[in-house]
Amino acid sequence: MTSRILKAAVRASAADVITRLSDDSTFAEQADDIVSITDAGNGLRTWVLAFRGGAATWTQGTRPGADNPLRVEFAQISGQFQHLYGAWTAVDTADGCEVTYEVDFRTNVPHLAGAIDSAVGRVLVRTAHQLLSAAGGPARVTKGSHLLWDLAEKAPSPV
């Protein structure tokens, strides 16, 4: 299993950000790597995410956190992962809120998992960063910034 965590601060309230992240109907317009998100019925959505000249496709369910109203959980129901699940959690701060995006997954190609999981993880985290910026304004990353670019790309300057 591969896990990725991105933490970032935004200037919106935790409740506003979680409300926006709970509605994935507009996500395709907000992140470059999302090809489409379509209604799969029964509250499920089918995601198509661009990945190295191809696409990863899965159907997922999303629900509010059981014990935390400032948490949204998601999990693959069917698709191209052995498993995929995660959550968005927000906590109010003096300047807005800090949001944590956590995702655990394993691709369906076990013998290539080391290479493929790493690359898919970068796309998932980069997409999460773009979605968070759309939901709460420019996101200042506090953990996981090294996951925002592909290894073949030059790392952005820290300036």
Rank of each mutant, 00 (worst) to 15 (best):
M1D: 07
T2E: 12
R4H: 09
I5V: 15
I5Y: 08
K7V: 11
K7P: 01
K7T: 09
V10R: 01
R11K: 15
A12G: 03
A14F: 04
D16H: 06
V17H: 04
T19M: 11
R20V: 10
D24I: 06
T26R: 10
F27Q: 11
E29R: 13
E29W: 06
Q30S: 12
Q30N: 11
S36D: 02
S36W: 02
S36G: 00
I37S: 13
D39C: 09
N42F: 04
G43H: 13
T46I: 07
T46W: 03
V48K: 15
V48D: 10
L49H: 06
R52E: 08
R52D: 09
G54K: 12
A56D: 14
T57Y: 07
W58Y: 15
W58F: 15
T59W: 14
G61T: 09
T62D: 13
R63L: 11
G65N: 07
G65Q: 08
G65M: 07
A66P: 04
N68P: 04
P69W: 07
R71I: 03
I77H: 09
S78G: 05
Q80H: 05
Q80M: 13
F81M: 09
F81C: 08
Y85P: 00
G86D: 00
G86R: 00
A87Q: 11
A87L: 12
W88G: 00
W88P: 01
W88A: 00
A90K: 03
A90S: 05
V91M: 14
V91T: 15
T93M: 05
A94S: 10
G96D: 02
C97R: 01
V99A: 09
V99P: 00
T100W: 06
T100K: 06
D104Y: 12
D104I: 08
R106H: 15
T107E: 09
N108F: 08
P110F: 12
A113V: 10
A113T: 13
A113K: 08
G114E: 06
A115C: 02
I116A: 09
A119K: 09
A119H: 03
V120S: 05
G121H: 05
V123P: 03
L124N: 02
L124I: 07
L124H: 00
V125W: 04
A128V: 04
H129E: 04
Q130W: 04
Q130K: 01
L132K: 02
S133H: 02
S133Q: 03
S133N: 02
G136K: 03
G137P: 04
G137V: 03
G137C: 01
G137M: 03
A139C: 06
R140N: 11
V141N: 08
K143E: 15
K143I: 06
G144D: 02
S145D: 13
H146L: 13
H146V: 11
L147D: 08
L148F: 06
L148C: 06
L148M: 10
D150L: 14
L151N: 14
A152V: 07
E153S: 14
E153P: 00
E153Y: 08
E153F: 08
K154Q: 12
K154W: 10
P158M: 05
